[in-house]
Amino acid sequence: MANVPKDLRYTREHEWAKLEGASVRVGITAYAQEQLGDVVFVELPKVGVKVTARQPFGVVESVKAVSDLFAPVTGQVAEVNGDLPNAPEVVNQDPYGRGWMIVVTPSGAGDWDQLLTAEQYEQFLAAGGH
């Protein structure tokens, strides 16, 4: 079973969300990167763009597939991982660390509680992950 850190929250589209003070850092899970295989391209929004919970904010492409990235929370993009355009493979190597994608400043608090806990996400994966 893929690694599911306890201190994160998750979407059913396999993004993780990490609360950092008033901000939320976002990436894709170990399960997601395993399913995608070698990541070759990540398309991310610019700083300042508004993203909406459960709506696509970007795209990740592997050799075989293209997949939308879904925002876990509504808010404004505060940071973008500038390393990914030149080193998309870090998404495979370190999905919960250097492979992070964006940091969002949430516009409200409600979305966070809608996200899956680690236990719920593990159950979701055990049930097939889709």
Partner: peptide, 14 residues
Amino acid sequence: KLVGLTMAGRAVAR
């Protein structure tokens, strides 16, 4: 005609 293309960026043409 069937040609070969290279992409300038990293987006994959599918």
